[in-house]
């Protein structure tokens, strides 16, 4: 007696319910993803959801990543429109109202100079997002080029690039940042440059390892057999395949750079007062911990929210773009 008809049924909705795990020890998840892999290869295939829609489905089923992405986008949006919605200019001091608790007038309270903490947090968002964003973009740009080159060519030049990466990665990043900022002075541009230099090796390493992996694949060999130019092979054949890991790494670097910029601000090596840098605000808040805990709370919450959101988003990206067989 066939039960084929009963089991197949209508394709349950756009995104089928994911399998809930077996609560006891289950030591063979790998097979589950093998079946998924076969499904993608059209052997034990599922429905016809492909391409971008597939990614949306997967994102939708991962609440953590979804939350992260939403929060991230919200903060970026707020950073962009900050000046327009800010109730007070961030540096406007109000001698009448220092250290006021959060209220209808001052959502996040005021600091020791009577400045509105909410406005300062908003304007700080702008600073941190811009600096981190530009720094990460720079790291990605240089990292991609150097990583492609270092991975593909064998020879002295790529060895040097790899060694430079190793060298830069040998130093704890905050220490290196401190030394560099101390040399060139803490301006916004310098911080962007420092972030860029600091994180280029990470991006470069990731790209390099993907290139090393792809270099020996047959489609690259086929291109070589057609005597394609190196530029074509690197940019048209290999680069598109690095986008997955690259996106994940970029998101991670962005989150680290927020961390870094905030830490530099905390140590006094970031943008100087009276700028409303979140790290700086936290550092100021130390002295008023008992009196005005909101001075600490809101900038800290902002930093934490942005970093955590970016982490969740990047982790979600990693899961979504992971090749078959490496789920989780």
């Amino acid at each position: 007696m066939t039960r084929r008809g009963a089991s197949a049924g209508p394709t349950p909705g756009l995104c089928a319910r994911a399998s809930r795990g077996d609560p006891e020890w289950n030591t063979d998840r790998g097979w589950q993803t093998q079946v998924e892999a076969q499904g993608r290869q059209g052997k034990v295939s599922g429905g016809d959801v492909r391409g971008v829609r597939l990614y949306w489905c997967r994102l939708a089923r991962r609440p953590a990543a979804l939350v992260g992405t939403v929060v991230f986008l919200t903060i970026v949006l707020l950073a962009a429109i900050g000046p327009t919605i800010s109730p007070y200019p961030p540096n406007e001091q109000d001698a009448e109202a220092p250290l006021e608790a959060p209220s209808g007038r001052h959502f996040f309270g005021t600091d020791q100079f009577g400045r509105d903490v909410f406005s300062r947090v908003l304007s700080g968002a702008r600073g941190v997002v811009t600096v981190s964003g530009l720094g990460t973009a720079m790291a990605v740009a240089i990292g991609v080029f150097s990583g492609l080159f270092a991975g593909y060519q064998r020879g002295v030049r790529s060895e040097i690039i790899t060694r430079v990466y190793d060298l830069l990665l040998c130093i704890p990043s905050l220490l290196l940042a401190m030394v560099l900022i101390a040399s060139v002075g803490p301006s916004k541009v310098n911080i962007v440059l420092v972030v860029g230099i600091l994180y280029t090796p990470n991006v470069g390493r990731v790209v390099r390892s993907v290139v090393l992996d792809l270099k020996s694949k047959e489609f690259v060999e086929a291109a070589k057999a057609r005597k394609e130019r190196r530029g074509y092979i690197l940019f048209r054949e290999i680069l598109p395949n690095t986008l997955g890991p690259l996106m994940v790494e970029s998101a991670m670097r962005f989150s680290y750079s927020i961390f870094l910029v905030a830490s530099l601000g905390f140590l006094g090596l970031g943008v100087q007062p009276p700028a409303s840098d979140w790290g700086l605000m936290v550092s100021d808040a130390r002295d008023f911990l008992q009196l005005a805990p909101w001075m600490l709370l809101f900038p800290s919450a902002a930093i934490a929210a942005l970093v955590i959101a970016t982490n969740l988003m990047s982790d979600g990206l990693r899961q979504i773009t992971a090749p078959a067989g490496s789920a989780g």
């Binding site: 994911a18 809930r20 795990g21 609560p23 020890w25 289950n26 030591t27 998840r29 953590a64 989150s255 961390f259 905030a262 830490s263 905390f266 790290g279 936290v282 550092s283 800290s300 930093i303 934490a304 970093v307 955590i308 959101a309 970016t310 982490n311 969740l312 982790d315 989780g328």
Partner: peptide, 26 residues
Amino acid sequence: GLKQNSWTDHFLSVGSLGFIGLPEFV
């Protein structure tokens, strides 16, 4: 890892992401 995709796993994974995100000064 052993209880991959269970509630325990989600809690631990997401929780750990949270802790990574919390700067040390905070």
